[in-house]
Write a protein that binds this DNA or RNA. Sequence first.
DNA 1: ATAGAGGTTCCAGTGAGGGGAGACTTAAAT
DNA 2: ATTTAAGTCTCCCCTCACTGGAACCTCTAT
Lengths: 128, 128
Amino acid sequence: MKIGDAAAESNLSVKTVRYYADTGLVTPGRSESGYREYDATTVQKLRFVARARGFGFSVAECRELLSLYEDDGRASADVKRIAEAKIEALDRKLAELHELRDELSRVAMACAGDERAQCPILDRFAEI
Amino acid sequence: MKIGDAAAESNLSVKTVRYYADTGLVTPGRSESGYREYDATTVQKLRFVARARGFGFSVAECRELLSLYEDDGRASADVKRIAEAKIEALDRKLAELHELRDELSRVAMACAGDERAQCPILDRFAEI
DNA sequence: ATAGAGGTTCCAGTGAGGGGAGACTTAAAT
DNA sequence: ATTTAAGTCTCCCCTCACTGGAACCTCTAT
């Protein structure tokens, strides 16, 4: 199957699928005329990567997960370690964003939001 | 004051301060020899931007906030609107990350994490 | 006089693609 | 059989907010 169908079947854009081939994440064949040719296995890998990306894994992490996926001799512990590191990273990010959100919310609440110039939000950013 | 001191006083890197000058976010003067010259007002603007960036605002948003900060005739409503839009964006991001975190956590919990190949995490990504 | 610290410009790269040009191939409609 | 439309190819520039480095210049201290 050609790239357009492979993209549709994996819920990725054609540009993204081409990018994944360019960076060696998947290796489609080539037709005589030079078109990339995707077989079922390769499309399945694309889908795998699309889902892992959706879970917040970087392309580099997807590469690692994909090689474990392809490795019959893998240990599930290796996969779990990657997932747990990602969960911890998500927790850190969540805590940071939450704190930001709360302080911004506090400051915004104190702002009258009228036609006057006085503004606690700007004051907070300008704080000496 | 020269760029190194301005950077130190605003908790930014020299590279960042130069970038902000290149993109017109702040406009330092120039000494005869060509060095950027930062006065107190300009350093204060750098500090303002550094804090706003720390709150998650993009440089473009900082530009907008900075122009309100400099505008004596501003209405605090304009600032509040920007802040509330950012809070809503943060809420959306938080909800998304939280959902991700929880599902990843559920899936990881189901993984034995041993030397066997069977892995619910990979299964989840490979799901048909 | 010279060493070193700090300044200048410009170029390249990051992650993960998106947009578009110009050339080519393929599939469908006439 | 021909034409047209859609799809694909490579290539290059753009994003965001910087960071790193090279080559060169200026200032200060010894």
